[in-house]
Amino acid sequence: MNIDEFKTTWEKTNKQYGYNEPYPKFVEKIGFQIKKFMIPENQKYQGATGNARGMLDALLRYCKKTSVPEKNLEQFLTNINIIIDFLLTVRLTSQVPLNTAFFIRKRLENSTIETVSEAKTILEKEITFHQENYDTSENKIASIFKNRIIDRVESYELDKLIIGTHCHSGVVRKAILEARDYISQVIVDKTEPEQQGVLTAYQLIQEGIPVKLINLSQFGFEFRKINLFMFGIDAVSADGVVLNKMGTRMIATLAKTKDLPVYFLGATYKYARKTLLGGLVKVERRKVEEKILFNHLGIGLASHLDKKVNINGTSRKLLETGFSAFDTTKPDFYSSVVSEVGFLPMREAFELAWKEYLD
């Protein structure tokens, strides 16, 4: 659902229920902030959990601003669903907003509601729970994984470990800080073309954690120093395939050749429920041509993007760029997924953590 479709759907709902609820321009703004997450002032909505926080902020703000009459319960609930549907299309791969929306809808469906006020009370309580639970879940993961790091230190007969990571993950950062007494250095690559790894490096050095910032291609050399890898998670399918930032699979594949342990850390919110019945995780593609074409040699390539060349009677672009934000890593190439439930396959962990909503 794009912005025009969002506006049109909102207007149709107003006509259907006979009450002209003002268009929530703030939802459109939050959608922009989620999409443009690398702008400094928007970084609170960076990552899958950040995307979900944006959705919850929009829903909470709507609850406080809505003027829908008490008797128009169906209009209020319809508007909630329209806001959710619009914001879910901003970042296609993010599972945290998808699962959070699923839980919210389940809570509303399973509740006896007669007025708008009752619906708002239930919704606000559910929103507050998830806002707090995001942090609670990540703190549990950090505590659980600290034990694994301690075990690795003892089994390797080392004082401290050197950790390798990629891109930016809030829960990985928390786990590193939790186990800082057992970590001598973190090696992270810049993660081109959007350079989220720079954010990881910055946040860790602000906490006094020694960091080595490298290019992705340098990991092959650094493998001789690294003791284990920690990655975040964007999504995990029912059969355990992990989606994460492009480049993760390459690192995990190389790590296997060196018998280095690889762990994916993420809350059960990251489970891709629909994959159990054959659905696929939608992989986001971003327009980053300008960043890819930039080079320190000063060679201007952008002017060639619209040019074409004829090869054996077939017209082809002379130059094109491509970037897929995520790749996949199969269970054969990692040691374990770690959620707030512990070292369990994500599907099993999800069903344990959210049994109340699944019955």
Rank of each mutant, 00 (worst) to 15 (best):
F37W: 09
Y62P: 07
K36F: 13
V68E: 03
I34D: 11
G47L: 08
L73Y: 03
T121F: 09
S67Q: 14
Y134D: 10
T112R: 11
I30L: 05
K44E: 12
N110G: 07
I83V: 12
R107Y: 11
F129A: 03
D57H: 06
I104S: 07
Y134R: 07
V116M: 05
I80V: 15
T89S: 15
N79H: 14
G47R: 03
F76R: 03
Y45T: 08
E132Q: 11
R107I: 15
L88N: 02
N139H: 10
T78S: 15
L60R: 09
S67A: 13
T112D: 14
G47Q: 03
D135L: 11
P97H: 00
R107L: 14
F102Q: 05
E70F: 01
D85T: 07
E41H: 09
Y23W: 08
S94F: 02
S117E: 14
Y19E: 06
P24D: 10
I104K: 04
E114S: 14
E70R: 05
L77E: 10
I113T: 08
K71A: 15
A101G: 02
Q43A: 04
E118C: 04
N42I: 00
F86V: 07
Q95W: 02
Q43S: 06
T49A: 14
Q33F: 09
I34R: 01
S137A: 15
L56F: 02
L92C: 04
F86R: 03
